[in-house]
């Protein structure tokens, strides 16, 4: 199998091994018309094993969602075969409609049109809390 080098597109590298499919789903990459390559369990000096996603088109990515799922990912934007930008990620201050509040007493459990918003309350421990009821959604580092 040969995955061609990208001329114009995005490479998501240093994804924790086994999590590429989750990212594929969350970022809704299945809806894209361009080629998307998922490489699982690639060798990595730094990580031992890692996953990589190559998107053969420059699209708008929600970096907050990516940062929430795995702040270790690097995002490289490639245009005309050249690396034009590399983003390091970090845990975002807020995520909207990525996590659902599990608290049955939360107002979002009955008023479902409300956006599901979580805020980062402890960066070191990666703890997010629902802005409405403060229920914790512990970030899975």
């Amino acid at each position: 199998m040969i995955v061609n080098p990208i001329t114009d597109g995005i490479v998501l590298d240093h994804i924790k091994a086994g999590r590429a499919m989750e990212l594929y789903q969350v970022l809704n990459l299945g809806a894209l018309q361009c080629p998307v390559a998922i490489i699982k369990n690639a060798d990595s000096k730094k990580m031992g094993r890692k996953d990589i996603i190559k998107i053969f088109e420059v699209i708008d990515l929600d970096l907050d969602v990516l940062g929430y799922i795995d702040p270790g990912i690097t995002v490289s934007i490639i245009k005309n075969g050249e690396l034009v930008k590399r983003h390091g990620l970090e845990l975002p201050e807020r995520v909207t409609n990525v996590i659902r509040c599990r608290n049955p007493r939360c107002i979002t459990s009955v008023e479902q049109e409300l956006p599901q918003v979580f805020k980062l309350t402890n960066r070191e421990k990666g703890i997010y809390r629902c802005i409405y009821c403060d229920t914790q959604a512990k970030h899975s580092k």
Binding site: R105, I107, E111, I131
Partner: peptide, 10 residues
């Protein structure tokens, strides 16, 4: 006052 948590914030 509301029985659901977060209702006053909404």
């Amino acid at each position: 006052r509301h029985p659901k948590e977060g209702a006053p914030m909404v």
